[in-house]
Design a protein around this nucleic acid. Sequence first.
DNA 1: GACAGCCTTCCTACTGGAAGGTAGATAAAC
DNA 2: GTTTATCTACCTTCCAGTAGGAAGGCTGTC
Lengths: 196, 196
Amino acid sequence: MSNLLTTSDEILASARALIMTGGYNGFSYADIAAVVGIRKASIHHHFPSKTDLVRTLVMRYREDAEAGIAGLEQRVQDPLALLQSYAGHWAQCIEDASRPFCVCALLASELPALPPEVAAEVKAFFRFASAWLTSVMERGAEDGSLTLSSEPRVEAEAFMASVHGAMLSARAYGTPEVFATILAPTLQRLTPTAAR
Amino acid sequence: MSNLLTTSDEILASARALIMTGGYNGFSYADIAAVVGIRKASIHHHFPSKTDLVRTLVMRYREDAEAGIAGLEQRVQDPLALLQSYAGHWAQCIEDASRPFCVCALLASELPALPPEVAAEVKAFFRFASAWLTSVMERGAEDGSLTLSSEPRVEAEAFMASVHGAMLSARAYGTPEVFATILAPTLQRLTPTAAR
DNA sequence: GACAGCCTTCCTACTGGAAGGTAGATAAAC
DNA sequence: GTTTATCTACCTTCCAGTAGGAAGGCTGTC
């Protein structure tokens, strides 16, 4: 086995790509098998049920996000720059079509139809993202690097909603630039007048 | 037939409710049959294929939205009040769980996996909503009832993104109030300082 | 008014294929 | 020699969709 990725990782990666395009009910074990190059039954060896597979996938997705955020926080301290990096990250993912949609945003839209175990993981992702953005808003309000017009918590939720809504519009119009176009004024509003 | 709704209308209504909870692949003809109280085959008489059914449903959804907007424009002239009514409409729909999600927002998230005919109708809905919101922003900028920080087009896209993102968050957290919480600062930013 | 033919709507019964999942064998790895 | 990973073969259930027919209503003609 000269491969860098384990089979289980390949299964997760292809499932993630498939979910990003069509959601939970938009892919099957047969689809994954075709991409990875193994048989359906072999997938069941790694993930007994589809629920197991997607729950693991979402857990891993959140862990990756947590690691990404931790890394970002080490490189960047300024709250405004953090928000810009976050938005910029997604702008790039959408524009180069590498990760055209947030897995958890897509799954959240079909939340009532998801297996409860998966739904719980999706909710956990939202809570994590919200908590991080709230902490960024709090730091920005404190050191004056962000101009908030509401409490940090509300500002964080509104920011996350803009990101998700902008993703949706970019997909609906088929024009990736729309994402950056929508985020630009959102970020500008948070920028102190002195820094403009 | 003492019924007020035709069977075809009942089929469309139950399909709409089912799509709102789980998207295009989240329901089947059998699900509709169970709700409406007829057999699967009878649905095929009204809508030969699932694509036909959903395309018709989205077309009708857009027509209803157009009629709703036209009615609103007759009752309300002030641009800010129009935006407030629009947001308030959704806040109510989400809070009383009657229409907990926008059909087109949900379908847009799975756009790449939809039949092309359905995808085209979803895109048309986004274009309509965007055009209307842009016209509201333009009128508001002209008569001073709205304070814009970008061009009307951009402001309209950002507003729509906030609405869709707020819907998603309300669903993800399972707390309908989040929708209004997110929209409040968005509307406040558009309100002229004198009117606050 | 009665009948004939047609149209609409719904039915039962079915098809082929895809879904998620299982049983059990094989072969290499530890 | 047990564990791990994969396979073939199969199961059950569900899916969208079809065939063909029964019931009832509408309409035109005598």
